[in-house]
Amino acid sequence: MPNLNQFKTLTELSEIIQQLRGIEKKLFLARPVKRGEHPTLYANATDGKYRTVCGVRVCDYQLSTDEQWVEANEQMGLSFSGDWQHLKGVHKMVSRYADAPVDVFWVLGEANLPPGMAFKPDLAKKGHYFLAVVERMKLSTLITNLELIAHRMSKIEHVTLDE
């Protein structure tokens, strides 16, 4: 019977994966989400900066004027943390405004992403990554892709990050 391990941090899990694979450090990408919310799509919002179109925030992706297409842009996309310090800061911000516990969804950076999508580092902020559209696609395709990625993500519940 194989050994079962309980991991308490993403860093610990990342180290074990490296040891098992005998490879260099692999990037993990994580995003804190209010419990009960979808890890890659948002609830409908009809106006303001965080307005959504079918669960996609208009401030996250570059949509065409008719909002049927998503333009390629490596510096826009769903936000992910690529290191512990960035994750701590985002978790603190999300926790401050959430009226429920916050869970962390994560995926390895080498995840088999759908065609036309990639994790790209934010050139303006260390530790921040975008799940970017790198080839123009229909909005419906992006939504399907985000659902597939969410299905591949792992969740850590009851997250508390020490200061």
Rank of each mutant, 00 (worst) to 15 (best):
G89S: 14
D83W: 02
D66K: 08
Y61H: 01
M76V: 06
D47T: 09
V90G: 00
N73Y: 12
A43E: 13
Q62E: 11
C54Y: 11
H86K: 13
V53Q: 12
T46Q: 15
Q62I: 00
R51H: 00
L87C: 11
E67Q: 15
Y61E: 00
L87A: 10
E67R: 09
E67C: 03
N44P: 04
G77L: 06
S64E: 04
V90I: 12
G48W: 03
L41W: 10
M76T: 10
D66V: 01
H86R: 14
G82W: 11
T40A: 15
T46G: 06
H91N: 14
K49V: 15
E74A: 14
G77Q: 07
Q62S: 03
T52N: 08
W69N: 08
Q68S: 12
M93S: 15
W69F: 13
L78E: 02
M93F: 04
L87T: 08
V70Y: 03
Q68K: 13
V70R: 01
S79C: 15
S64Y: 06
K88R: 09
A43F: 04
V94Q: 04
D60A: 03
C54I: 02
Y42N: 14
R51P: 01
T40W: 01
Q68T: 13
M76L: 14
G48E: 05
S95L: 00
V94F: 11
V70I: 15
Q62Y: 00
L63I: 03
N73Q: 12
G55T: 02
H91I: 06
V53T: 14
Q68D: 12
L41F: 09
F80W: 06
S95P: 07
T65Y: 07
H86V: 02
S81V: 01
Y42R: 11
D60L: 01
F80N: 06
S64W: 11
G82M: 04
V70L: 05
G55R: 01
G77W: 03
H91V: 07
E71H: 08
Y42L: 06
E74C: 09
V53I: 15
Y61N: 01
N73R: 03
E67L: 10
A45L: 10
Y61K: 00
V94C: 03
S79E: 06
S64D: 07
M93G: 00
G82N: 12
S79N: 08
V53D: 13
Y50L: 05
C54E: 15
